[in-house]
């Protein structure tokens, strides 16, 4: 029982990371209607830019800011491709494009960062906040959760209260129509991509030191991130947040049972399916068609 609680506490870091990444995914989807498989890869680019800059002697905070900017820049590049050529494309085409971009970005990323060559990821927040049930709850874990909540809160306020937020919502629902009524569609979309890129970068910069930071590994964090976003149906930011924490917790709890062995990774997946089927039990028709 106690070891279960221990694992629950230990899962907070991963949970917070998934939550923040998931919120970023929902953010991108709600505002520019793209499920971005390359999302974590964009963040990984920024995070590795940070690590490489610090390796060559840039001060930590300078490197961090440069990393965030780089993440935003890569986000804008991906966004430019998406908005320029695929603004009106179908979901499956967009999914295929972001998959192709994931392949491309990781290829470049692995080349530049040298595969499994470990990089010194400076810890932006080191040390632990407190000890709970024999587990050190690190500052990073706290920061991740806090950031995810802050981001969720801010997005909510922004979308519902601000003029630009309302414009953005119009944009995601009908880009062409939004353009007609004079909303600077292209520009706004790119801002969304930039913010998404920077936020993902921040998330990955924070968790990279505690994970095996290789480019591919960080890029594939998109899977739990999207799974969290799915729990919120790519609509609700708070449900996404919760989903991320739950998935992180689940992974951690299951690793406490050696019997489940190799099937560990399958368990969160099954839970997601169960949650979805239950919550969608009333839905029969696709809304739009």
């Amino acid at each position: 029982m106690n070891s279960l609680l221990t694992n629950a506490v230990a899962g907070l870091t991963a949970g917070g990371a998934y939550a923040l990444l998931g919120v970023c995914a929902t953010f991108t989807f709600r505002l520019v209607a793209v499920v971005n498989f390359a999302g974590a890869a964009i963040g990984a680019s920024g995070a590795f830019a940070f690590a490489l800059l610090v390796e060559v002697g840039t001060p930590i905070w300078g490197g961090a800011i440069a990393g965030l900017l780089f993440g935003a820049l890569v986000g804008v590049l991906v966004g430019e491709i998406m908005t320029r050529w695929f603004a009106e494309a179908s979901t499956s085409i967009k999914a295929a494009v972001s998959t192709a971009l994931l392949v491309g970005v990781t290829a470049v990323g692995l080349r530049v960062t040298g595969g499994q060559r470990p990089h010194e990821f400076p810890e932006l927040l080191s040390g632990s906040a407190f000890r709970l049930l024999g587990v050190e709850v690190t500052n990073t874990a706290i920061a991740m959760l806090g950031l995810a909540m802050l981001f969720t809160l801010l997005i909510g306020l922004f979308l519902n209260r601000s003029h630009v937020g309302l414009q953005l919502r119009a944009l995601s629902e009908r880009p062409a129509a939004a353009e007609l009524i004079g909303i600077p569609v292209h520009q706004l979309s790119l801002w969304v991509w930039a913010i998404g890129g920077a936020a993902t970068t921040l998330a990955l910069m924070l968790i990279a030191p505690q994970r095996a930071p290789n480019f591919l590994g960080l890029s594939l964090l998109v899977v739990p991130a999207l799974a969290s976003a799915l729990i919120g149906f790519f609509r609700s930011f708070w449900a996404t947040l919760l989903g991320g924490v739950v998935i992180g917790e689940m992974e951690s709890l299951i690793s406490g049972f050696s019997g489940l062995g190799a099937y560990r990774t399958a368990v969160p997946f099954l839970v997601i399916i169960a949650v979805l089927l239950w919550s969608q039990r009333g839905g029969r028709w696709d809304d739009a068609r």
């Binding site: 899962g11 505690q210 994970r211 290789n214 050696s258 062995g261 190799a262 560990r264």
Partner: peptide
């Protein structure tokens, strides 16, 4: 434990 993932959080 033969189930350590290649990437992930190793705290547990």
């Amino acid at each position: 434990d033969l189930t350590v993932p290649t990437t992930g959080d190793y705290t547990p």
